[in-house]
Design a protein around this nucleic acid. Sequence first.
DNA 1: CGGCAAGTTGAGCCAGGTCAACTCCGGTGG
DNA 2: CCACCGGAGTTGACCTGGCTCAACTTGCCG
Lengths: 282, 282
Amino acid sequence: MSNDSGLLAYIDERASNRSPIGPHLTMLHDAPEQCKVCAFYYDSGNFCAKLNLSELHDLHDHSQLETIKRGTQIWDHVLDDWPILAIESGVMSLQQILSDGRKTIASFFMRGDIIDLRNAANRKLGALVALSEVTVCRLSPEKFERIVNANEDARILIWENLRDQTFRAIAHSSDLAKKSSREKLAAFIFECQRRSPSSHRCDVVEIPVRRRDLAEYLGMQPETISRCFKDFEKRGIIGVSDLSTIRILDAPALRQIANGARPEEARRSSGHNAYNILTTSA
Amino acid sequence: MSNDSGLLAYIDERASNRSPIGPHLTMLHDAPEQCKVCAFYYDSGNFCAKLNLSELHDLHDHSQLETIKRGTQIWDHVLDDWPILAIESGVMSLQQILSDGRKTIASFFMRGDIIDLRNAANRKLGALVALSEVTVCRLSPEKFERIVNANEDARILIWENLRDQTFRAIAHSSDLAKKSSREKLAAFIFECQRRSPSSHRCDVVEIPVRRRDLAEYLGMQPETISRCFKDFEKRGIIGVSDLSTIRILDAPALRQIANGARPEEARRSSGHNAYNILTTSA
DNA sequence: CGGCAAGTTGAGCCAGGTCAACTCCGGTGG
DNA sequence: CCACCGGAGTTGACCTGGCTCAACTTGCCG
């Protein structure tokens, strides 16, 4: 997919309608070449797969596919023009810097996520930074808007994608709020498993980010991350082969930890539970 | 709830669409009584205000307005049928209970928020619990869906509402991740100010939830909340009149704290005149 | 006025932050 | 091919912010 990025470099983004195949819409029997190999198209149930060929070509011709290196920030003035990003591969992060330099990664965006930052300017959300090599498609806001208006399937899908991002952020909030370091890490491992591209559940999980980024995402220190991994490994819950790959050896135990079961003690339970919540265990 | 639905049944929704003063809509010169006093209708720029009278009546007639008491949970089997909630007043919370009893409030929903929990069942998000007396309108999913499909203004508004919830959750995540207790509380005070119904910025801020709920939202202990409030008060940054009302006395200082400026150190300002620095805007 | 929940205050302690030293590893250049 | 470098990760020692527990005060409601 990087073999034709050289082609892209030539293109004048503003003026040309740059259809890679054919001058006009006469040859709509096929999807654009770039789209054929893009997850948004060939993943069943992703956005571009919902479009008809006319829409797909229209969107493609006014969008920009780009590969960006780790550490690159997408600047605000670019986002002003291209506020809608489709992450095709890699991991993007939304990060904030506090006045004294502490850095926080508020959210990860991975393959299949569509980031819609229209109107996000007022609320300063932070910077979009690539945590790995990222392939991203900048969707034309106008075409996107038009397609979403016209195509109900696409609209529903986009809506669910956004809701999923919301739910993910909410779940992440509650992880951060009350969980211990081990619990957060365990929950994150399952989150990685859940979001892994290979939809088949597998006990080998890829950690797609560096320890350091992971620490910033989970609100911890790299040292603590390291200690927690070591702890899990020592207890035989996971196996660590290399830094970016682990194997879950004792899924039930890991699940218990992720769900916040304390070892044995001190359930100062139930007495003050005015709300009588009925906890439905998964 | 649907007292005058008979009349409306006559109307052909398609033909009368988007014509607030259509021919045989003469008797529809008025919104439903309940809607007239509802924030979603009279707040400029909220959902129901975007509907034409036909849509408004249709939605109203198939929805349920309800007042629920503090501590009440909206049960899952109810959410299955009524997954879309419009919060008219009060504070709803989304809370999770960990296996050992720790409770987390992941998100607050206040006036003007529309909670769309369709398809949220798979990802167990937690329970919806009222933190105060809440007036909520359960929107008919079918009517809601139809209106969102037909009415572009309404759709855009809903879309922005959801995006705002996402951004809020993300911002909350980054607050929880790396901020100290004081910083989180300061940030929360500003969040309350921002979301207060009285749109005019005012230095008197209402804290709409109990200390205990606040603690669970911010991932702290009630004792710590109390100590932080006392600390701010002692330093003259805020004034506390009663438990649910505070007054911001030194907004710049509070802002500094919320943004994560540490007390003394690391000020690379090198400045002679600290007052000339205008870092924070709006 | 009495009872109960919410909030506050105080004392002690521990999980995780902080700092420093070290290893590991890929890239680079002589 | 090796020496060197720098950034990432790890390990150990120490320290502190905020959790915990317990006792107390306040406020609300019948």
